[in-house]
Design a protein around this nucleic acid. Structure first.
Length: 181
DNA sequence: CCCTGATTCGC
DNA sequence: GCGAATCAGG
């Protein structure tokens, strides 16, 4: 990858995102090509105002005014195809570079029955680069459109999907067609 | 453990 | 100027 640099454009985006209250790691993910340390270092060099309260816990001081999409019940949805291309992305997290493999392409229209009596998670509408090892990687929307995003809600274990989407992902066969035997 | 920003210092 | 390593903290 070409050496990333702080072009005027990237600096402007940095300033805007920092002003919006995004964390350094999130900004790094959004800009791409830089670590959170790089972002923090740049912030200081630019003499941008630091955060009121250092180390602001992720859940405490977070503007996070995501559109908060309300998922409407659908009898059937699209789910990732079994054969998808795997893309490896790196993401800065702390002082570590995490490598993640996320299926991004190839979807198939599959009849998926929505589990009843389960809470449908509120999508955090995360971008590919914002996914971490504990965010649901269930894709939402058309990968070709710019409103494409991932569920991103929290995951219990280190599973790829949240509880809800795991149920969608793993559906033995068909509930209505079990004969053939 | 997860994460946050702050600082240092070799490049 | 840059950012990895490190530190300090929630």
């Amino acid at each position: 990858m070409t050496t990333m640099q702080w072009t005027d454009d990237r600096v402007e985006r940095l300033k805007r995102l920092w002003a919006e209250g995004l964390s350094a790691s999130q900004i790094a993910a959004q800009l791409g090509g830089v670590s959170r340390n790089a972002v923090i270092g740049k912030v200081h060099r630019l003499n941008l105002p630091g955060r009121a309260k250092a180390g602001g816990s992720s859940s405490a001081a977070r503007p996070a005014k995501r559109p908060a999409q309300t998922q409407r019940p659908a009898a059937f949805q699209t789910r990732p195809a079994a054969a998808t291309t795997t893309r490896t992305v790196t993401r800065a997290a702390g002082a570590t570079m995490l490598k993640e493999e996320v299926e991004v392409e190839a979807y198939e229209e599959v009849e998926v029955r929505r589990p009843l009596n389960v809470v449908v998670p509120i999508s955090r509408r995360l971008a590919l680069t914002e996914l971490t090892e504990r965010t649901c990687k269930w894709p939402i929307g058309d990968p070709m459109k710019d409103d494409f995003h991932f569920c991103g809600c929290e995951i219990a274990d280190s599973a790829p999907y949240c509880t809800y989407h795991a149920k969608l992902a793993y559906q033995p066969v068909s509930e209505r067609r079990k004969a053939a035997r």
